[in-house]
Amino acid sequence: MKLLSNKTLMILLVLISGYGYIAGCTHKGDLLLPVPTSTGIIITRGVNFHLPGNMTAGDSSQWKLDKAHSSVLWSTNYVGAAGLLTGRFNQFGIHEVISAKMIYYAATGQALKDTSWAFYENDPSKSYLNGYVQINTSNTGEPGRDTGCNIGTLGTIKVIPGTQNLSDSNLAKIKSTKIEFDPLSNDYFVTFNLTWKGKLTAPLTKSIVGRLKYIPKAYVSNYAVFGLQLKFQLNCRDFGIASTSVSDKIDIECNMNFNNK
């Protein structure tokens, strides 16, 4: 190595390497991560409470279900494997339908008052919730299905115009047994009994846990509104539903809006 002495070669290589390390060690290209805004879950619960009273119009202390702006939605995987099948129930309410009330009513609207509930934002032990849906009012937007296969599959009969069918074969109802705080969010866990006959010979009651979300009170011009959203899942096979078109798991979402008009 006469052309380039060992010393020169070493100095050259060390210089090149040194420059490389200096150039490569700059942090210009590094991403600056934002400082986390919070290190924990912040749970805030107010002191609101809402009661239906007797639903007297004009009494702002009594909260009324705004059914026109509420919904009970269901969804399940088509044939248990494909995309979602969805629908809603046209007729539902928040009333504890005891056996004596499980009859046909000659009415076009709700036959029972939506008064079987109470909600205390900061004391769930005092809250409770009872509700129902009329199974044959399932509305998928496809009349052929709603008045056809759905009726037979769900073990009920078609809608009789001018009649509210709250008989046991057409009624699915819930009755809360415990409401408690979700320690990880502002939501609540609701344990309730779901009673539905489905295709069984007699109504079956199953205990289910759902998640309840409270959308706090807000004022709209001269009245106030609040919302409750209950989500849960049931296994329709428990109730004798053997259809291959629907998955065994049915997701239910109840969006209830209330006002104090």
């Binding site: 390497s17 490389g20 490569g24 060690c25 700059t26 210009k28 290209g29």
Partner: peptide, 12 residues
């Protein structure tokens, strides 16, 4: 791109 030199030096 400075990442190229960084990569090179790591590999080196």
């Amino acid at each position: 791109n400075e990442s190229i030199v960084k990569n090179d030096m790591n590999v080196y």
